[in-house]
Design a binder for these strands. Sequence first.
DNA 1: CGTACTTTTGAATCGCATCAAATCTGGTGG
DNA 2: CCACCAGATTTGATGCGATTCAAAAGTACG
Lengths: 210, 210
Amino acid sequence: MPRELPSTYPHIPKVGPPARSRLDALLVKQATPLRRRSGDVLFRAGQVPKYLYFLECGEVRLQRITRTGQEVFFQRSAGGFIAEASLRSAAYHCDAVCRAPCELLALPCTALREAIDTDAAIRWSWIDLLSAQSRGQRLRIERLALKTISQRLLHLIYTEGEHGSYTLQGSRKDLAADLGVTPEALYRALTALESAGTLSVRGRQLVWHA
Amino acid sequence: MPRELPSTYPHIPKVGPPARSRLDALLVKQATPLRRRSGDVLFRAGQVPKYLYFLECGEVRLQRITRTGQEVFFQRSAGGFIAEASLRSAAYHCDAVCRAPCELLALPCTALREAIDTDAAIRWSWIDLLSAQSRGQRLRIERLALKTISQRLLHLIYTEGEHGSYTLQGSRKDLAADLGVTPEALYRALTALESAGTLSVRGRQLVWHA
DNA sequence: CGTACTTTTGAATCGCATCAAATCTGGTGG
DNA sequence: CCACCAGATTTGATGCGATTCAAAAGTACG
């Protein structure tokens, strides 16, 4: 049982995804639709970014290869822009691989760069997007710094869930990778929390009994 | 001993801090210099951001308070902008506390917002800044997902260091918090790596013998 | 109806947290 | 200059939680 509950600021409103109507319009006008199968590679580390990808449905994983050749899970995307930080980079910093059949939009980097310079709404959409991503990453860092799986789980439900309820996006194995633990440990932590009455698992819903 | 060395992409050039000459000029013109003593609070979570702070020297910590009232280390800044992601937020998401005598510049959010709309160079400086921060946070996430302290240390040296050599910014206790481990465990890992010949510690330099 | 993958459980082991105490360090005031 | 203090560093002992390896049971999908 965690002795220290996840950190929280109840008085801070949750930040939703930034409005992006103009950005959406740009996507419709300038981007080309793509379909990719599971296993296809969107881009590899080291390549020069030519397109920004927007994931409409499916799943894409950002990953890197360790020195010993092992794939290391990096981040999972189930929708939205991928590798936003690469708009002006000289090279991608990770591989992007589809893990499910995907529908994507490929927007030329040049198109977005121009739009950012000429369209104030798109400009601020982009800045808000980057800011939101940064805040999300910070929460993830905070979560990974917690010592026990239980703490990380409750932190996840509290920061990413709605009304104390978090809906799993992928498999539990994926969740384990997200939390930086092994699947076995996660399963055990879930049953332990459930039998302690702290949590209940209903299909893909994790509900926290505060 | 770590069996799996930190992930690396030798062919990807390291990304330096973005050029920000116009942004610097804006700071000089529109920002007011501040001095703060150790322990002073720059802002608290929940407050509406009015100023962006640029840390010239000293040390500022971003932290949150857990439910049980404990302070939890969040991020440490030894220079540069603080809470970049709050430019258009409705509220700060953490506290900022000085941990050393600080010299800062306070730039009104409105000034930067206007500059981003009218000055293309500043606009792109800001986007590059956010992107660089996002990349840095991603590396930190990758690091915290490693299982052992040794792996995290070598990952740190590899990704943040120069030529296999990393210079400590603060105390080792701070480094331990950065790596998400206890100081005791870090000390032991350092001596273990050193006696194994993997690492050598010279003052505030950590040198990795590959 | 396989086949591949996820989920689940078990047992052994390892690494880190924890608590405690001693030593070292830089900076302070006498 | 020295005594002193707060904080950082270091070492020790113990226990817990997660990893690891193994294997069985469940599940989705062609």
